[in-house]
Design a protein around this nucleic acid. Structure first.
Length: 566
RNA sequence: CGGGGCGUAGCGCAGCCUGGUUAGCGCGCCUGCCUUGGGAGCAGGAGGUCGUAGGUUCGAAUCCUACCGCCCCGACCA
């Protein structure tokens, strides 16, 4: 490919819309152009990188025995009503009506469609197991699209769905995908972790996420420093510290705390640490008020709370809602005598003699103890893990790091097959629901994540497997016949050797060509200019570390090979 | 949805507060000369419904109102 034949509109200046490095570089390197919020055109060079990812994904999916198909993007609402998700999925599901007033939606994912296929086509245990996948544009009307391809509304996703006769079979299918995903992300050259995850609106019992480690990640993951434990912080299990021995329970007392409402202010006033205070938060869980007890220095992990409550909508109650539900103004809430459902974090039960609101304006209680001064029927792990918590599997130390979710695999079980009546007959003629799994990869997001992880001040540094071209030949002697002939000969030779080769044949000054070569991230750069006429050697430069070698054209193939792999 | 910011040439911005000739600058683009191993230089040139619609005014990019779009933060800790 020649630069003159490919639209790669590079930019010297960074468009104002970009915040994170991958977005900036993708705009500067002419990968993408925005059409509207969260919706981008993939320009030729950017598309080429996406195709690299797609090919790796496709190869590994096929190798794992999955079959490719392509499902519709427009889906009828009835199908979503059958699974119950037409309501449950929320405003991210873009809904519209067609000219016949039929309700429709744009597919944010395809469990419903694939389950419909499965119930029509799979009738016998002899048809199973099957794994079907597609690589397709999804649409999710994200609340706040950002960071370019990182969180777009339209994005390219690989989604796969497995169907098995039973749980054991589903386990095998899941494990195959787990292994395939590890291979995929390794082949992409990404620094990633597979972590235990929450299954969210997709549903299901069990799931793992594949996280690319990068500071700009939108997720936090808890990683054990000693063992292999790794989990999304939404899911990371908190092991409560044991109840301290020999602490004498003090007598509860009431104290006036005029105008003291916030944790910090109350603690200062009472001269105690936030860890000696228990805060009472009120949530509206599907509009039902629920009080949550948590040590003053801790944070609620709402995903854990939501899962425990098994609700679809969970919001913090505002001041008015709190007063309406409890009759107490915010800041003075407490568990003693509270009138609404009460959920305590497990740590609260092990904390002696803590302070709480008195359920009375301008008063708090001191030396309160769970079980003695109030009943707790629900003791649950609902707080965020911290770096001072132990690893739940080995007791080692935990480290919190940021990650970009590029893959997610779920064991779905039979929730979709049962709600949508996807049954098969086993060898004894019994009707049974298909046991499902689903497996997603954010293809366009991988390119963004890759750039987050592989760049320097001059631009992108593509890992070889994702580079649209492994090598670019910079022609610095457009007017010199010998140089042009050499460039063409090298181009031929390298292509014949199996490389994807690019030539910068533009009539530009050397500086411009070098800058663009760096920006575009070619792993290898081959420069042919005046020096070749003098020495008969061409210059080979590795993008990753700037390693430069003068090479004779005869040895070019072996040298390129050596530098690319070395 | 709440808060904040922005909308002026393809891109990045100034001008607006304090209204007043042909609306500027840098990059990019076009022509010519020159230059050719790290985003050169000189000369000339093209390119604007100042987001949209109303209003105030003798006069609006500038003041007012509404709308649209984009970006950032938040939508969790009382």
């Amino acid at each position: 490919m020649r630069y003159s034949q490919m639209l790669i509109p590079t930019l010297k200046e960074v468009p104002a819309e970009a915040e994170v490095i991958s977005h900036k570089l993708m705009l500067r390197a002419g990968f993408i152009r925005k059409l509207t919020s969260g919706i981008y055109t993939y320009m030729p060079y950017g598309l080429a990188a996406i195709r690299r990812v797609e090919n790796i994904v496709r190869e590994e999916m096929n190798r794992a025995g999955a079959q490719e198909l392509m499902m519709p993007m427009v889906q009828p609402a009835d199908l979503w009503q059958e699974s119950g998700r037409y309501i449950k999925y929320g405003p991210e599901l873009l809904r519209f009506t067609d000219r016949h007033e039929r309700e429709s939606c744009l597919g944010p994912t395809h469990e419903e469609v694939i389950t419909d296929i499965a119930r029509r086509e799979f009738h016998s245990y002899r048809d199973l197991p099957v794994n079907l996948y597609q690589i397709q544009t999804k649409f999710r009307d994200e609340i706040r699209p950002r960071f370019g391809l990182m969180r777009g509304r339209e994005f390219i996703m690989k989604d796969a769905y497995s169907f098995d006769v039973d749980d054991a079979g589903a386990e095998v299918s899941y494990q195959k995908m787990h292994d395939a995903y590890n291979r995929i992300f390794e082949r992409c050259g990404l620094d990633f972790r597979c972590v235990e995850a929450d299954s969210g609106t997709i549903g299901g019992s069990f799931s793992h996420e594949f996280m690319v480690l990068a500071e700009t990640g939108e997720d936090t993951i808890a990683v054990c420093n000693e063992c292999s434990y790794a989990a999304n912080s939404e899911k990371a299990v908190v092991v409560p510290a044991p109840k301290p021995e020999g602490v004498e329970l003090q007598e509860m007392s009431k104290i006036e705390t005029p105008g003291k409402r916030k944790v910090g202010v109350v603690c200062e006033f009472l001269n105690i640490k936030p860890s000696e205070l228990v805060k009472t938060l009120v949530y509206l869980a599907d509009d039902e008020p629920v009080a949550v007890l948590l040590r003053g220095d801790r944070e609620v992990e709402e995903v854990k709370l939501k899962n425990h409550l098994n609700v679809t909508d969970l919001v913090m109650a505002d001041d008015k809602a709190v007063f309406d539900a409890t009759g107490v103004p915010t800041g003075y809430l407490g568990p003693v005598g509270i009138k609404i459902r009460l959920i305590a974090d497990q740590e609260v039960v092990n904390t002696p003699n803590f302070a709480v609101g008195a359920n009375e304006k301008n008063f708090h209680l001191l030396n309160v103890n769970a079980g003695r001064d109030f009943e707790v029927s629900e003791v649950v792990d609902i707080r965020q893990i911290t770096e001072s918590d132990p690893c739940p599997t080995c007791g080692g130390t935990i480290r919190l790091v940021e990650g970009i979710e590029v893959g997610h695999i779920f064991k779905l079980g039979t929730s979709y097959s049962e709600s949508m009546k996807a049954f098969y007959q086993d060898s004894e003629g019994n009707e049974k629901p298909l046991v499902m799994g689903c497996y997603g990869i954010g293809v366009s997001r991988i390119v963004a994540a890759c750039i987050e992880q592989n760049h320097d001040g001059n631009g992108i540094i593509f890992p070889v497997p994702l580079a649209p071209f492994q090598i670019t030949i910079v022609n610095l002697g457009l007017k010199d016949e010998t140089i042009c002939q050499t460039v063409e000969a090298l181009y031929q030779k390298l292509q014949e050797a199996g490389f994807d080769v690019f030539i910068d044949d533009r009539d530009e000054r050397p500086g411009v060509k070098f800058k663009d070569a760096d920006l575009l991230g070619f792993p290898m750069r081959l420069t042919v200019g005046k020096r070749f006429l003098e020495s008969g050697q061409v210059e080979l430069c590795r993008r990753r570390d700037g390693l430069v070698q003068d090479v004779s054209p005869d040895e070019i193939v072996s040298q390129v090979q050596k530098l690319l792999t070395g």
